[in-house]
Amino acid sequence: MAAAHRETGTRGEDIPPGKPMSVEQTVMDKGAQMLQSLKPVKQMSQHVCSFALYSHDMTRQIETHHYVARINQDFCQSAVYDTDDSTGRLIGVEYIVSDGIFETLPPEEQKLWHSHAYEIKSGLWVHPRVPEMVVKPELENLAKTYGKCWCTWQLDRGDRLPLGPPALMMSPQPVNLGMVKPGLIQKRDDKYNISSEALKTARAEIAEPEWINPQADYWKQHGKGFTIDVEPTEMKKRAPFP
């Protein structure tokens, strides 16, 4: 499935093709928003800004904005956007599990997940505008977790629409191949008036996990990423009636 490639221009040029919102559509949306519960969306209680690298090409690195809903103490799910602006585009999804749950996964499944310890302790993972002392307990918990993140819209290559199959994303790691470009970090830090280096120093006392399962961050041990191919397949033409 071929994807369109072009240089990314102004924000107006990056939005999907289509007509401007009509007055009728705006009224409909506002009315529905007032009348419907939108309960799953309202469970999103945290905004996290971090960075992700494509599993199949770690020279491609993007800033990500995660809107997190915690289902319980061991499981989170998040919608991933390209920005925290009102024009933010939904570019993927990430699931986060505790180390206890991760250890129950089959080895082949574990290969698709990444650890969060370095991302937390290095100051790359931030909760914008929330004081560190408030989020410290959450950071200590997250440092022991694993995530599986799929990118469904590859904006960094200029796609104005979500094209092709999803791409598996990985977390930054303390090796040359998996480190985030300084310019990308600086741009983010300037936006939120923070210092990733200062956060790294402040988080030095956050405990490292006693053990990070080597099946996670699979590329670090084996130098191989994962991609999804789209293949035609025979479909089931009949389904039992409920």
Rank of each mutant, 00 (worst) to 15 (best):
A216D: 00
H222T: 08
H65D: 03
C49M: 11
P20K: 02
H65S: 03
Q110C: 11
G31T: 11
A204F: 06
L199H: 01
R89M: 09
H56Q: 12
Y81M: 05
N213A: 02
D74Y: 01
A167L: 15
N176P: 08
R6A: 12
M21V: 14
P131W: 10
L124A: 07
M179R: 11
K191L: 08
G223E: 04
A4H: 14
T145V: 07
S86L: 14
Q43E: 13
L38V: 10
L168G: 01
A4V: 15
I228Y: 08
V130D: 13
M179C: 12
I15H: 12
L142K: 03
G158E: 04
R160C: 10
G92A: 02
Y67C: 03
C149E: 05
K111G: 04
D14W: 09
S115I: 04
P182R: 05
G92T: 00
Q154Y: 03
V230T: 10
H56I: 07
Y146V: 00
A52M: 07
F226P: 02
C76W: 07
A143C: 06
V175S: 14
I212D: 01
H222Q: 07
T201C: 05
S45R: 08
L177D: 15
P128Q: 08
V135E: 13
T87R: 12
R238I: 13
L155I: 07
I96D: 02
E140D: 09
Q154G: 03
K236F: 11
A167M: 15
E140A: 09
E13P: 01
W219A: 05
E234H: 11
R11T: 12
H65F: 03
R160I: 13
K220M: 14
K200F: 02
F226D: 05
L155M: 08
V48A: 01
T26G: 08
Y192T: 01
K148D: 01
S195V: 00
G223V: 02
Q77R: 10
Q73G: 07
A202I: 00
G147W: 00
V230M: 12
D159G: 10
